[in-house]
C-alpha cells in the first residue's frame, strides 16, 4: 500500500477517466465523445473535463436526452470509421437504449460474418450512493449476460485510467461501468492502487488483480466493493483471518484462472457483488469454480449481494440490502468460524 500522504496527484476517479479520454482523443482524431452534459459541463461527474475546450463541439458533443437514438448513432458512426465513446449518464438509463446495445452493438460483428467492427465504448456510472431505486443500480450482471460485449468494471484509481485507455483502443465494444463513489473518491483515500501516471498507459482487459494476498479466504469482487473488501479484510486480519482479495476488473472476458488458483489455495470462496444476487455475477463465478475444482477440496462457498430487491430510498433500509464494510466483515468472520 502506498503511503497516501505522499501521493502527488490527488486525483479522483473521474479525473483519471477524463485524462484517459483526453489522451486517447489526442492520439486519434476518429475518437469522439457523445452524451448528455459531456461538453461545457465536462460530464455530471467530471469524467470528460477539459475535453470540450480542447477538441471542440464536433468531437465532444452535448446530446439531447435521446439515449436510444444517440446510442444507435454510435453504431452508424462506428460503421463509418469513427470510434465513439458514448456516455449514458447513469447505468439505470441503459434501459432506454438497450435495444441498440444488445441487438446492434453486441451482435453486428457476428452477424456480419466478422466483417464489421464495433469500436464503441459505452461508459456509464453505476452503483449506490443513496439515490434509491432508479439511480443506484449496477446492472453489470445484466449486461454481462448478453453476448458480444466486453464488460469492464474498474476499481483502483490506476485502473480507471488504464482500463479506459484500453477500452477506447479496443476494436470490440466495451460497456465500461464506473462507480459513482469511486468517480468522486480521491487518491489519498483509495486503498487500492491510487497512483495515476501522467503519461498514457493501458491495463489489459481480462486480467484480474490481487490487491491483497492472503491464505484463509478468497474474496472475489469488483468495483467499489474492492475498497470495502480491503477495509474489511484489514479489520479481520486483526483477528487472524487472512483474506486474499481478487478484483475482477472485467466480467467479460472473465479471468477465472486467477480465481481458481486462489481458491485452490484457500479452499474458501466469498463472492461480494453490489449488483442483484440471482442469475448474476456471483452465480457465474461460483459455477465456474465448482466446474473446475473438485467439490471435496472446497470447504466453503458463500456469496453476498443485493438480495433481489430494488434499492430503497431510506438509509435504514438501504444499509441492510447493499453490501457494506460491516456486512462484508461479518461474512468473513462467519466463514472463518465455520471452518
Amino acid at each position: 500500500m502506498a503511503n497516501n500522504d505522499k501521493i502527488e496527484r490527488n486525483l479522483n476517479g473521474s479525473e483519471a477517466i477524463a485524462e484517459a479520454i483526453f489522451q486517447e482523443m489526442q492520439q486519434d482524431d476518429n475518437t469522439i465523445l457523445i452524451g448528455e452534459d459531456v461538453g461545457k459541463c465536462g460530464g455530471v461527474f467530471g469524467a470528460s473535463r477539459n475535453c470540450f475546450s480542447e477538441f471542440g463541439e464536433n468531437r465532444v458533443r452535448d446530446m439531447p436526452i435521446s439515449e436510444m437514438t444517440f446510442t444507435g448513432m454510435g453504431v452508424g458512426m462506428a460503421m463509418s470509421g469513427l470510434r465513439p465513446i458514448i456516455e449514458i449518464m447513469f447505468a439505470d438509463f441503459l434501459g432506454v437504449c438497450l435495444e441498440q446495445i444488445y441487438n446492434a452493438i453486441g451482435k453486428i460483428h457476428y452477424m456480419s460474418g466478422g466483417t464489421v467492427k464495433m469500436p464503441i465504448v459505452v461508459k456509464t456510472a453505476a452503483g449506490n450512493i443513496g439515490s434509491a431505486a432508479q439511480h443506484s443500480q449496477c446492472l453489470w450482471g445484466t449486461l454481462a449476460h448478453l453476448p458480444g460485449l466486453k464488460i469492464v468494471v474498474p476499481s483502483s484509481l490506476y485502473d480507471h485510467k488504464g482500463l479506459m485507455a484500453s477500452a477506447i483502443r479496443s476494436n470490440d465494444p466495451v460497456i465500461f461501468f464506473e462507480h459513482k463513489e469511486l468517480l468522486l473518491k480521491r487518491a489519498r483515500s483509495f486503498l487500492s492502487n491510487p497512483i495515476v501516471p501522467k503519461k498514457t498507459y493501458t491495463v489489459p482487459i481480462g486480467k484480474a488483480v490481487k490487491p491483497r494476498i492472503g491464505s484463509d479466504i478468497t474474496l472475489v469482487t469488483l468495483s467499489y466493493s474492492v475498497e470495502l473488501a480491503l477495509e474489511s479484510a484489514a479489520e479481520v486480519a486483526k483477528e487472524g483471518i487472512d483474506v486474499e482479495i481478487i478484483d475482477l476488473r472485467s466480467l467479460v472476458p472473465l479471468d477465472i484462472e486467477t480465481v481458481l488458483q486462489s481458491v485452490r489455495k484457500t479452499q474458501r470462496l466469498l463472492v461480494v457483488d453490489e449488483d442483484y444476487q440471482s442469475f448474476g455475477v456471483s452465480g457465474e463465478i461460483i459455477t465456474r469454480v465448482v466446474e473446475n475444482i473438485e467439490p471435496t477440496s472446497l470447504k466453503q462457498i458463500k456469496r453476498h449481494a443485493v438480495p433481489d430487491v430494488p434499492i430503497p430510498a431510506a438509509l435504514s433500509l438501504e444499509q441492510v440490502v447493499v453490501p457494506n464494510y460491516e456486512s462484508i466483515k461479518n461474512m468473513l468472520i462467519m466463514m472463518a468460524k465455520g471452518s
Partner: peptide, 21 residues
Amino acid sequence: GFGGHMHPFSLKQNFSATGIV
C-alpha cells in the same frame, strides 16, 4: 420511505412520478 423524493406514488390522488427522463 421506500420510494423517496424522486418517485412518490399516491393512488388516491392518481399521482405518480418517475426518475427516468
